[in-house]
Simulated scan of single mutants.
Amino acid sequence: MFSETELLAVFRALSNPARRQMLVWLKEPMSFPGQKPEDVEIGVCVSDIQRRAGLSQPTTSQYLTTLRQAGLVVATRRGKWTYYRRDEENIACLLDTLRDVF
Rank of each mutant, 00 (worst) to 15 (best):
E89A: 15
S56D: 02
L95Y: 07
R99N: 08
E89T: 15
T59D: 14
A75L: 12
L23N: 03
R52W: 00
V40E: 05
K80E: 07
A13N: 04
L95M: 10
R99Q: 09
D87G: 03
K80D: 08
R19Y: 11
P29Q: 01
P29H: 00
T60N: 09
K80N: 10
T76L: 09
Y84K: 03
D87V: 03
V101E: 09
K27Y: 12
Y84S: 07
K80Q: 12
L67S: 05
M22N: 10
T97S: 07
S61G: 14
V73G: 02
R12M: 06
A92M: 09
T59I: 14
Q35D: 07
G34A: 05
W25T: 07
M22D: 12
D39Y: 11
R51N: 02
P33E: 08
T97Y: 05
G71Y: 13
L64F: 01
A53I: 04
F11A: 05
M1R: 13
C45H: 15
A9H: 15
L95A: 10
R19M: 13
N90D: 09
P33Y: 04
M30K: 05
P17V: 01
R86C: 02
T76E: 12
T66M: 10
V40L: 04
L67A: 08
T65A: 11
Q50W: 00
S47I: 14
L72Q: 02
S56A: 03
Q62E: 14
D96F: 08
D100H: 15
F32E: 06
V44G: 08
Q57L: 11
W25L: 02
R68P: 00
K27G: 15
Q35N: 07
E88W: 09
R19W: 06
Q35G: 06
Q57Y: 11
S31H: 00
S15C: 00
V44Y: 07
Q57M: 11
M22Y: 07
Y84H: 09
Q21G: 03
M1T: 12
L14E: 01
C93R: 15
M30Y: 01
L98C: 03
L94K: 08
M1N: 11
C45K: 15
M22S: 06
D100V: 13
L14D: 02
G34L: 07
M30C: 00
F102H: 08
